[in-house]
Design a protein around this nucleic acid. Structure first.
Lengths: 211, 211
DNA sequence: TAAAAAGTGGGTTGTCCAATCCAGTTCTGG
DNA sequence: CCAGAACTGGATTGGACAACCCACTTTTTA
């Protein structure tokens, strides 16, 4: 888990307590940045939300950019963790549908606010912080890997035609999800998200019929 | 066209020259915000790029937020204009493929930088400027409308099964495009974009076979 | 041709915020 | 037990930037 990495920049050792505090800062930053974006989140906001005093943020992070990168890694863990077991059952159409329902429901509960914790954050900093962009890309790769794993099982099991490429399909599914989340965020309505995921899953289901 | 609207807030009339200058400011702002994001683009940068003097930006816009909203409308016009005729031929699979090729090629030429001029901008300001969020949502709706129009023709012509809903399909296609653009931006690689669009178009093509 | 709009070019104000520093206290792991 | 880490709480610096104001000139339109 990327979060457990001690990445203070210099080769300093963190005690258990230190790791906890660092994590508290990252979690507070993640929540605030998810709600208000990176630019609108000040280190002072984060400090207060994390319940630490003045110099602590700089004790654990070089600067704001380093904190942003840590937040991206943290959100990658969080997203995969939240979707949990559902990501282990993407090797059947029913499993894929259940995953879809969970995501749609989750967005509905959030009032479609915030978009994707990884995608939205990555987009905001993509053109100004190359390291953060790469971190976000890596996070999406991890996510895509989980989807691909499920489709791969379907493929080797013979549920998907030999000609289909599970990676292409996984990439397309994640893209549909990302776009659906973005549009849902802008329109404050889950309909685009549902349409995007349903279209991709219908596609996969129709492929299983052809196999 | 939204750009031609005289939207200075108060009921001031703009001369032809005034409209040109206003447009020059919006265009400069659009380019800078596309390249560096809203937060990283200062009014001074815009002023210099547009080649106008000190007080001119405030002569045409209430504040920065008003300018951002104008930029979103401008980008909506620009995107639809750039895709031009291709949007009028989305009523055949060949036309859809040609549109796809154009978009992928365009992204390749840009080095996958910037993402979607509407989506990326909208995502950045979505949670801090409701009016801008709504403007971005409206822009995407216009785009979706063009896609839907093509699919609608296919549907009434009988190329798509009666059971399919052109709007759902259009929504899904635009979402796939948005997600593909985002992932391409983060990975600096058109592959996710290609996978997303190809999957959606394959889906549409297979539906035409079933009709 | 006069009023309104467009434009110049500079100054100013106030705020926000990242980043740095420090003097001292408390905790904790080897 | 003690050295290094964690932590407090405040002060400070320096820069960036939005927003506003003004005196004056040029252009446009009715």
């Amino acid at each position: 888990m990327a979060v457990n990495q001690v990445e203070t920049g210099d080769g300093r050792r963190l005690t258990r307590r230190g790791q906890q505090t660092r994590l508290r800062i990252v979690a507070a930053a993640a929540e605030l940045m998810f709600e208000n974006g990176v630019a609108e989140t000040t280190l002072e906001d984060i400090r207060a939300a994390a319940g630490v005093s003045g110099s602590q943020v700089y004790h654990y992070f070089e600067d704001k950019q380093a904190l942003v990168r840590a937040v991206i890694d943290y959100q990658a863990d969080t997203v995969l963790d939240t979707q949990g077991d559902r990501l282990d059952h993407l090797d059947t159409v029913a499993g894929l549908r259940a995953w879809r329902d969970f995501i749609v429901d989750h967005q509905r509960r959030l009032g479609c606010r915030g978009g994707c914790p990884i995608g939205a954050l990555g987009a905001e900093v993509a053109e100004t912080d190359a390291a953060a962009r790469v971190a976000a890309a890596r996070a999406l790769r991890r996510w895509e890997g989980r989807i691909r794993a499920g489709l791969q099982v379907m493929h080797t099991r013979g549920d998907l035609p030999a000609g289909t490429d599970p990676e292409q399909l996984a990439l397309a599914t994640l893209a549909a999800l990302q776009g659906g989340l973005l549009m849902a965020q802008l329109e404050r309505d889950t309909r685009p998200l549902e349409a995007a995921l349903d279209a991709m899953l219908d596609r996969i289901e129709s492929l299983t019929g052809a196999a």
